[in-house]
Design a protein around this nucleic acid. Sequence first.
DNA 1: CGAATGATTGACGAATATCAAGCTGCGTGG
DNA 2: CCACGCAGCTTGATATTCGTCAATCATTCG
Lengths: 245, 245
Amino acid sequence: MATIDLNKAPTPNPFGNLNPCAACTVRDLSICQVLDKKDLQRLAEIATNLTIAPREPILDEGEDAAFLFNVTSGTVKLYKLLPDGRRQITGFLYGGDFLGIAMNASYAYSAEAVTEVTLCRFPRKKFEHLLTVLPTLEQRLLSAASNELVQAQDQMVLLGRKTAKEKIVSFLLSLSQRRADRDETPSPVDLPMSRADIADYLGLTTETVSRTFSVLKRTGNIRLLDGGLVELPDFDTLREIADGY
Amino acid sequence: MATIDLNKAPTPNPFGNLNPCAACTVRDLSICQVLDKKDLQRLAEIATNLTIAPREPILDEGEDAAFLFNVTSGTVKLYKLLPDGRRQITGFLYGGDFLGIAMNASYAYSAEAVTEVTLCRFPRKKFEHLLTVLPTLEQRLLSAASNELVQAQDQMVLLGRKTAKEKIVSFLLSLSQRRADRDETPSPVDLPMSRADIADYLGLTTETVSRTFSVLKRTGNIRLLDGGLVELPDFDTLREIADGY
DNA sequence: CGAATGATTGACGAATATCAAGCTGCGTGG
DNA sequence: CCACGCAGCTTGATATTCGTCAATCATTCG
């Protein structure tokens, strides 16, 4: 399309780009955590703040990987498509997550905003240069990659060997764990994504996801609240379900 | 067990440990590729060569991650177990592959020798120290992690969204691609692992793997040769099957 | 030669996908 | 303010793929 995509337009930031990172609310969760004030300033100099509306694309698989991102708020989904349209969501990103570790010259997956999303965008070349100068940043990135790999392996177990019920409960527990990691209450958890998204993340169909939620609700293992919130009343039982005891 | 595990005993190396890496046949494939002679020597100083017999464990999930490894020959399988014994193989490693990127304080998966395997073993602490001194090595490791993540995402698509036939053909093509990457003939490919291992890698059962091989054989898409070799006569057709056109 | 292990094939069943029909909630516009 | 319409969610009936259970075959190794 010929028009400028307003969703991707940089928003002027209230700090005049002097050091927007200083005010970043998710800095302690992100890769920036390891940088001191001076280095943060250097990162800020190559960063642009963006806001993306729900359902808007952030990047496309195969596209030249010109930018890397930090998610500062909202929920992002990463996915890959098969030629006939089958979709696998490979992950959801939230505030503090880094987007762009798994790429070569081009992006290995597509990314789309689930909710309204704010991002910190870095030109790849400049970011990579910064990596060579800031060894702590590179170490942090390696550690992030290592964590992502561990997560990816758990997801392979889920996709290859778990039943629908185990998949759903594992998913809910992982969302709960993420909350706990950020010192939030582990229940209720928020589900900003659709049933279809959950299905494509867990290797199921929307119908099976819906049915499984119904069963879990009926057996008292979860409670569905308003606003897409899910209450988890008994973690011990849920953990047993998730791991198939 | 109380006896010493002979399989894990270091073997004296013919170079008197002066610089065994200099003679390494897979160096150009491994993370060591980026090191010059001097740095290679430093790596060699902390390395121990090991030989592991088929079916012997190399490391166990949850175990304290005291060592990292380079596979120098043979085939290794990485896997995770569910409490009831269901198994997901998360990857196969071959000569040149690095074992131990995805770990924190403890190993995130178990590893077992499929064939006879030779390894280069590094004490983790010493290796991590070396990383801080050899930035090229750290960069190489980050790039290896990035590649592994891309692969992991492909595997998620396979596990979550592909049919049995698509899974098997994708697997064969990935083995073929690996050969091509190493300037070997893309066909035939070798299958050192059992049907059960293939099943646990692809999220199937041995029976389904066997039946699917039979179908592919009957339709002329593959030919099973002696010694676990599989000939791939028509890559274009196979690629279409793998991606579900 | 026989036992053991792995691979193949067959018959059957179960979990989940597919197809189809309502239901719910929410935004929009009359 | 309410009714309409749409999109997403739920539920039901049926189909299909793949798993389970079981028997046979092949290969290797004492």
